[in-house]
């Protein structure tokens, strides 16, 4: 009799068929987070602080404690939770608009304070929920509903590289950028999330995992098309890899 070797983590609701679009990797990341929480046996300690945007739809998926913070303020809310409840495993779950636009100050400040929580940052280069507006990580030349002729540096500046930006700070412990566009990268993303959560359990301070994903709907393509766009356009702009890992120096 065959043995069940893969099924969706129980950290995701059994009947969760959320509002994410076909091919959207938010739900992929939800699975990976759930798998890591199960493997570290910390499901009953987990508290996710969701931002506003498609990331907020995870309340349909996360079967563990989660709250929604004001747009951009997840890192501030997480500071409040973690500092008053160090025993909880606290992580924020934010999109690029939430984390790198309206919430950039909160993100940089929490990182600079070395807050001992983890950040899961979904970078899909666009505002998803609100219908495709330009985000801080929108690529040069990429069209958006608020950059109808494409992002132009002289008018809209350049994509923000959050990991590299935070790498200028002294306090952050671990910064890695991964993607979920192929099986290898999915496994690397899971490993990175696990490392970030383990850092927190070990009290090592601020960890952030930036996950380059797709947005078929607002990129004007389909699921498989978004994989190509990630490969050809997103990853050259947002190179994958470990930007900082202080555990190497420990």
């Amino acid at each position: 009799m065959e043995e069940l070797v893969y099924t969706r983590t129980k950290a995701v609701f059994e009947n969760a068929v959320s509002g994410f679009c076909p091919g959207c990797m938010h739900s992929t990341v939800a699975k990976l987070i759930g798998e890591v929480l199960e493997e570290l046996d910390i499901l009953d300690k987990a508290v996710c602080v969701k931002g506003i945007g498609c990331c907020g739809l995870q309340s349909n998926y996360f079967a563990f404690d989660n709250i929604t913070a004001a747009h951009g303020r997840a890192c501030a809310a997480a500071t409040g939770i973690k500092r008053t409840n160090p025993a909880s495993l606290v992580f924020t779950y934010q999109g690029d608009g939430d984390l790198a636009s309206i919430g950039l100050a909160e993100t940089v400040s929490a990182a600079n304070r070395g807050e001992n929580f983890s950040v899961i940052f979904i970078n899909n280069g666009i505002y998803g929920m609100t219908g495709g507006q330009m985000a801080p990580t929108t690529l040069v030349g990429m069209k958006a509903s608020t950059a109808p002729w494409g992002r132009k540096p002289e008018e809209h500046g350049y994509p923000i590289h959050v990991c590299e930006l935070l790498n200028e700070l002294t306090a952050p412990y671990y910064l890695e950028r991964t993607s979920c566009n192929n099986p290898t990268n999915v496994r690397k993303t899971k490993k990175a999330i696990k490392k970030a959560f383990q850092n927190q359990l070990d009290g090592k301070g601020f960890s952030l995992v930036e996950i380059v994903t797709g947005c078929p709907t607002n990129w004007g393509t389909d699921a498989l098309g978004s994989l190509d766009f990630i490969e050809e356009k997103m990853l050259p702009e947002f190179p994958l890899g470990v930007i900082r890992d202080k555990s190497k120096e420990d």
Binding site: E2, E3, V5, Y6, T9, F20, C24, P183, V186, R187
Partner: peptide
């Protein structure tokens, strides 16, 4: 072969794999 790649890649966990 039960390699579970499909299960891991599926955003919504629509594939259970047995081996």
């Amino acid at each position: 072969t039960g390699c579970t790649i499909c299960g891991q890649m599926c955003p919504d966990g629509a594939i259970d794999v047995y081996r």
